[in-house]
């Protein structure tokens, strides 16, 4: 929630309370306030379809409230009646009447301004890998393979750092254009891609998989996706054509090292995905 929006709406309501606003003003305030909070108050915006449902319910409820007793009905329509009939309101009334075509025109303009969007097709973002792949002539068993340089972390720290640095070099020469200089998936080309490049800082990406999963994804890229991953959609190249297997393992080391995550333990697989 964006607190500033909510507080602003509450503040307006408090002011209305202090000046003892009429029922009609209150109804308008509630509708607009609800709209403001729902439309702008969420960090992740609510889709228009849901917003429409909520606003329709709000409108229906406010209508029910305004007409649910004679007193309230009177308090609602009397100001409207006065505005429409009393001579002192002639000018504002004319302005309102004149602005109606303008509002319609504006909303039509807004509707036409919507950029064309392709339809949405559901795809599995992280589909399950095949049992084994062949990368540059080398067979890799994806269920069991560990990063061949991962054990250096304990045995030979110097060598491990060298591999990580090599991975860094590979990343910034090849990957960062899309995946970003902070690994956040917001590289300079990212805005043109759909699906968006993976965000390695997201806790749902690196720690959820073993390193072999990423080896598969790097080596085989978008075209290597199974059907449920929509192979034609992803712009990820098949890096086995450009990088050696060692370089790919190195860049995985670098990703985990730089993002500060640990790969998912080998034996954990199969415990959750069962049968």
């Amino acid at each position: 929630m964006k607190l500033a929006i909510v507080l602003a709406v509450v503040a307006v309501m408090v002011v209305l309370r202090l000046v003892r606003a009429g029922l009609l003003v209150w109804l308008a305030a509630w509708w607009v306030g609800t709209y403001a909070v729902l439309r702008y108050g969420f960090v992740t915006p609510i889709p228009a379809s849901a917003l429409h449902i909520f606003m329709a319910i709000t409108a229906l409820s406010l209508f029910a409230y305004a007409t649910s007793s004679r007193e309230r009905m009177r308090a609602t329509y009397e100001p409207v009646l006065a505005f429409a009939s009393e001579s002192r309101f002639t000018l504002p009334l004319a302005l309102v009447a004149a602005s109606i075509p303008g509002v319609v025109a504006w909303s039509v303009y807004q509707g036409l301004q919507q950029p064309l969007q392709p339809p949405y097709f559901g795809r599995t973002v992280h589909p399950s890998p095949p049992a084994e792949i062949t990368s540059r002539g080398e067979k890799v068993d994806l269920a069991r393979a560990a990063n061949p340089f991962r054990n250096l972390e304990k045995t030979d720290v110097q060598a491990f750092r060298r591999h990580v640095e090599n991975g860094r070099r590979v990343y910034y020469r090849n990957c960062f254009f899309c995946h970003g200089d902070d690994l956040g998936g917001a590289g300079m080309y990212a805005h043109g891609l759909d699906p968006v490049p993976a965000n390695f800082l997201d806790s749902g990406v690196l720690p959820m998989f073993q390193e072999s999963f990423f080896f598969w994804r790097i080596a085989k890229g978008g075209p290597g996706m199974p059907d449920e991953g929509a192979p034609g959609d992803s712009a990820m190249p098949e890096w086995e054509r450009m990088l050696s297997n060692e370089e790919m393992w190195d860049v995985i080391l670098f990703l985990y090292d730089d993002a500060g995550y640990r790969p998912r333990a080998l034996e954990a697989v199969g415990a959750e995905v069962a049968h």
Binding site: M1, T44, P47, A48, Y120
Partner: peptide, 18 residues
């Protein structure tokens, strides 16, 4: 939810976080 592509991207799926 029913959502446009842009909205789905913003939500990261058809599920809104809240």
């Amino acid at each position: 939810l029913i959502a446009t592509t842009a909205e789905i991207r913003a939500m990261g799926g058809t599920l809104h976080p809240m």
